[in-house]
Amino acid sequence: MPMQATTTAPLFSAELRPNRSMSAGAMWILAGLTALLFAAPSLLFLSMGAFPVTVLMGLTGVAIVAGLYPGLRQGKRRERITVWSDQVEFQVTDSAGATTLRRFNPVMVRLVLTRDEHEKTTAIHLREGTDRLEVGSFLTSEDKSSFAKALGTALRQARN
Results as ranks from 00 to 15, higher is better:
N105K: 07
D94N: 15
D86G: 04
P70A: 05
T99L: 08
T100A: 14
P41D: 03
Q74N: 13
R110V: 04
R102T: 15
R73Q: 12
W84T: 00
L46V: 10
Q74T: 14
A40H: 02
Y69V: 06
L72C: 08
R103F: 08
D94P: 09
L56A: 09
I81S: 02
R73E: 07
Y69Q: 08
G75Q: 06
T60F: 12
V53H: 03
P52S: 05
L111A: 07
E117Q: 11
M57G: 01
V62E: 06
V55G: 07
Q74L: 12
T54L: 03
E117H: 07
K120Y: 10
F45M: 06
Q91Y: 06
A39P: 00
T114V: 15
G49L: 07
T114K: 15
V109M: 01
E79G: 06
S42C: 02
M108W: 13
L59R: 02
M48N: 02
A39I: 03
L101K: 14
E119Y: 11
A40G: 02
R102D: 14
T54V: 01
V107C: 04
Q91H: 09
R115S: 15
L46Y: 04
L46E: 08
E119V: 09
M57L: 05
L113C: 11
R73T: 04
I81E: 00
T99N: 06
V107H: 07
Y69K: 09
M48I: 05
M108Q: 09
R115Q: 15
F45P: 10
E79P: 03
G61A: 09
G61R: 06
M48Q: 13
M57K: 01
R73A: 12
S42L: 01
R80W: 03
R73L: 14
L43T: 05
G58P: 01
E89Q: 07
T60W: 06
A50K: 03
K76F: 12
A40K: 04
T99Y: 07
K76E: 09
G49R: 09
V65K: 03
A66P: 10
T82H: 03
V53F: 05
L72W: 14
V53T: 03
G75C: 10
V88S: 00
G97K: 11
P52A: 02
V65Q: 04
V83D: 01
P106L: 02
T54R: 00
Y69P: 04
E117F: 10
F104I: 05
V109S: 00
V88W: 00
V107A: 10
H118G: 09
M48F: 06
V55M: 08
P106V: 00
Y69L: 14
F90Y: 15
I81D: 01
G58S: 02
